[in-house]
Computed example of a mutant assay.
Amino acid sequence: MSQQEPTPRENPPEEDEMAGESEERLDERTTLAAQVELLQEENQRLRQAFAHARRTEYQRAAIGLAILGAIAVAGAVVFPTVRTVLLALGATGLFAAVMSYYLTPERFVSAAIGEYVYATSVADRESLTAELGLQDTQVYAPTAAAGEESARLFVPEKREYSLPPASELDSLFVITDDAQQRGVALEPIGAALFREGRRAVSGELAAEPSTLCDQLGDATVEVFELADGVTTDVDSDDGRASLGVSGSAYGDVDRVDHPIASVFATGLAVTLETPVTVETTDETDRAEFLVTCRWEPNAETE
């Protein structure tokens, strides 16, 4: 009697279906990984191309200045009557060419990267104020740090508050015997920008609020490129400066210690030597955001 051979076991349809799905998911993951790698390579290539384009732009400007300088120097030889002027122009052009060529920036940080960094910083500050139950009030108080005029951002604990002495503002947590003076004191984002703005502005910063705000507005747009436009409306008698901000490079201006509001408030506080409060509203007829800085109107005349 012959023994019957066992028939091969067939996989259930469910197992075949699961195996097929697993293979499909594996293929998808492999495809996605390849696409991510390609995107990373393309991103790196675009970054290098952008940096190269910027360097090329500066180098072309340097070559153009060098050519103009050389022409001016050659003209000084041909036209002796205007030799002094042409030599001055030639020397200026050649010097500017050398500076443009060798001081070409090698690293460019996009506004999006700066926005991410600022968003992280402001999230920490908002969490700190929320955890401590602090008010939304922002007071920029003038101080003297390491012998240099500066300011600190004081956020009070009480709605009805009084500003603590400048010596108490050196600490992060301001804890005094007077409960109305308690809160936190932070380094304003605009402090470093204001110091840089001082060096960028031709001449001295004005002591008069209206002119000072115009100078800070120009620095905000032209030097720091924090916004596409800033308009100012200053009433010194009322102790108020209203700033219309359009095209902010760092998102909504109504966030805590926004760079634009911070640089104006810090500049006013340091220059007028008086505390400055800041309020920001959005969706105005005048601009995308309206920043209002207030101070005691008699402070600038004392």
Rank of each mutant, 00 (worst) to 15 (best):
D27L: 12
A53I: 09
N298I: 13
H258N: 01
A241C: 07
R125H: 03
V291A: 01
S150T: 15
G183S: 10
T231R: 13
Y101W: 11
D170P: 00
L163W: 03
L87E: 04
S22V: 13
L193I: 08
A191M: 11
F289Q: 01
H52C: 07
T104M: 04
P259C: 12
L212Y: 06
D218E: 14
P80V: 15
I63F: 14
A74L: 13
T281M: 04
R25A: 11
A96W: 10
V234R: 02
A49W: 07
I175G: 00
L193Y: 12
A130P: 02
T92M: 12
A141M: 03
V223H: 15
A66Y: 09
V230K: 05
A111N: 08
R83E: 05
D27R: 15
V85L: 15
Q59H: 14
T56W: 13
W295Q: 02
G197N: 05
E168H: 11
V256W: 14
T301Y: 11
E28S: 10
A179Q: 15
G247W: 09
G93E: 04
D177P: 00
A91D: 02
N298P: 02
P209N: 10
P209D: 07
A111G: 05
V155K: 08
D233H: 04
L216H: 07
R294L: 12
S202V: 14
F289I: 03
A261H: 02
T280V: 15
A19G: 07
R195E: 06
T231Q: 02
T143G: 00
A96K: 10
Q48Y: 13
V174E: 01
G244T: 09
V234T: 08
T84V: 12
A206H: 15
L272S: 05
G229P: 08
M1Q: 14
G64E: 12
S202G: 03
R9W: 06
A33Y: 01
R29K: 03
V98H: 09
L205Q: 11
T231L: 03
T277V: 10
D257N: 06
Y58L: 03
R25P: 00
E157L: 15
E23M: 10
S236P: 02
P142D: 04
T232C: 08
G239H: 03
E41V: 06
T274Y: 04
G64I: 11
D282P: 04
F50T: 06
E208C: 13
E21M: 14
L38R: 12
T176I: 10
R255N: 09
E42M: 09
L103K: 14
L39S: 00
L103Q: 13
E302G: 11
A66T: 06
A19N: 12
E126A: 13
P105G: 00
V270H: 11
D124H: 14
D257W: 05
L290T: 07
Q44V: 10
S162Y: 04
S246T: 13
G183L: 06
D170Q: 13
S162F: 03
D170C: 04
Y116R: 15
S262F: 11
E302K: 09
I260T: 10
F289A: 12
A219F: 09
A241G: 07
L290Q: 07
I260W: 09
V221F: 12
L290N: 08
V155Y: 02
Q48K: 14
F95C: 14
V263H: 11
G183P: 01
E5C: 02
L268Q: 09
S127N: 14
A249I: 08
E148W: 08
F50M: 10
